[in-house]
Write a protein that binds this DNA or RNA. Structure first.
Lengths: 233, 233
DNA sequence: GTCTATAGTCGGATAGAC
DNA sequence: GTCTATCCGACTATAGAC
């Protein structure tokens, strides 16, 4: 339905929309919503200024499209992993050992994407801004990205630590810590880069970070198993 | 020198400057540098618009003063702890056990301030924005806040894991993870609050977070000691 | 569907009275 | 040192030719 606009002919269909979204991704990320000007965006995308109101109804509409693009892309990366694990969980409760493998795999993929991927830096700047001053777009980001990730981590943690009724509050907090560790590499990137004197995250560094996250997770799980159930010692 | 402007007489000296800095803290944090307008700030601080150029030379000058205020305040919290630990280190290398206690104490104070304090939310929004698109203010934040914290954590970690020559790269990365865990509670506050259905961080929740951070640190150190030196197993 | 020109709004800074 | 009034620049959006 409504396929009319696209499916044109030769050179590249709807290029202007794409260019604007790409440019918006950069400029909104660098300068924030108000700091970004439609001129900068049109300039970066090498399209005419008036194309923004024409295609997206205005600056705000373009911003919405950028958010949509982020969510669609991230879900494209996330869904296969989530689906795989959910499929496994659907076949009955795995043993703690297997659940741990699933969790490690899940976190590994997350690191690859969050730390290693080309798009992540551009996405995360916008996401982070939404964290700080949530606009209506934050709802979509939370529901579409954050929540599924946290739920998956918490669910697996609950299985690993033998919670029958799914994740309790303690487990949710632990899940948050696990995910937060990974996110820290993204949102405090500038700090890490300076303190280690890096230029950015190379593939080698991504692997190094991945290893450290894995070890941290192991350590946490080990600690949990040797302290489990009761919390206050 | 140049003490002339202050040291006046009765009601409250230089109140206007203070009000503007307080208001700037809120408004810059909520809307970002460009998103914040001088009118909003003057309004919030209940001072006249023209007071901004008069007292600070303009919007940019006010922003600088806000950054300065953040750094001064944070250092006021940080310096006693840092000084205490440095004094101890100056007396000769502590045993790993004692170093671990020092580290736990350090992290605990950090949690109290980062998660529990009244000012932290307002400060961190601005700091986070600087992380994403560093302006010249980021240098001050990095040197005045981030770097000392990371160095302290890395130094203690190095002592705990028996590194004689101070923190190597691996240790610096670990220190970053420890600090990043704490920061995540601040940076991703909105996410945590939603996923646990909180209203904000109450004292009880701060204590809960503190406990989890302590346990995480223990688990990490335990893992390190039973895997130490060689990394890839 | 893309462009130029322009209208309308708003932000930051200044002038100058008090 | 604080206020009102105002200027100037920059931004978003629109009108209308092509």
């Amino acid at each position: 339905m409504a396929q009319t606009t696209r499916a044109k002919s030769a050179p590249a269909p709807g290029t202007t929309r794409r260019r604007l979204i790409e440019a918006g991704l950069d400029i909104f990320g660098e300068h924030g919503y108000t700091g970004a000007t439609t001129r900068m965006i049109a300039d970066r995308g090498e399209v005419n200024l008036a194309a923004i109101p024409y295609h997206f109804g205005g600056k705000e509409g373009l911003y919405g499209a950028v958010i949509g693009h982020i969510i669609t892309t991230v879900r494209g990366q996330l869904d296969p992993v989530l689906g795989e694990i959910e499929a496994r969980l659907g076949q009955g409760r795995p043993e703690p050992g297997e659940a741990q493998e699933l969790l490690q795999k899940f976190l590994g993929r997350l690191v690859d994407f969050v730390v290693g991927s080309k798009e992540a830096p551009r996405f995360s700047r916008i996401i982070l801004r939404e964290q700080m001053s949530p606009s209506s777009a934050y709802d979509q980001i939370y529901e579409g990205i954050m929540r599924p990730i946290l739920i998956m981590a918490a669910t697996l943690l609950a299985v690993i630590t033998g919670r029958q009724d799914g994740p309790d509050r303690e487990t949710q907090l632990r899940a948050f810590v696990l995910i937060g560790q990974i996110m820290a590499f993204r949102f405090a990137r500038e700090t890490l880069v300076r303190s280690l004197g890096l230029e950015g995250y190379s593939p080698g560094e991504t692997a190094e970070i991945n290893r450290i996250i894995l070890e941290q997770t192991e350590a946490m799980l080990f600690g949990l198993q040797h302290r489990s159930g009761s919390a206050t010692d």
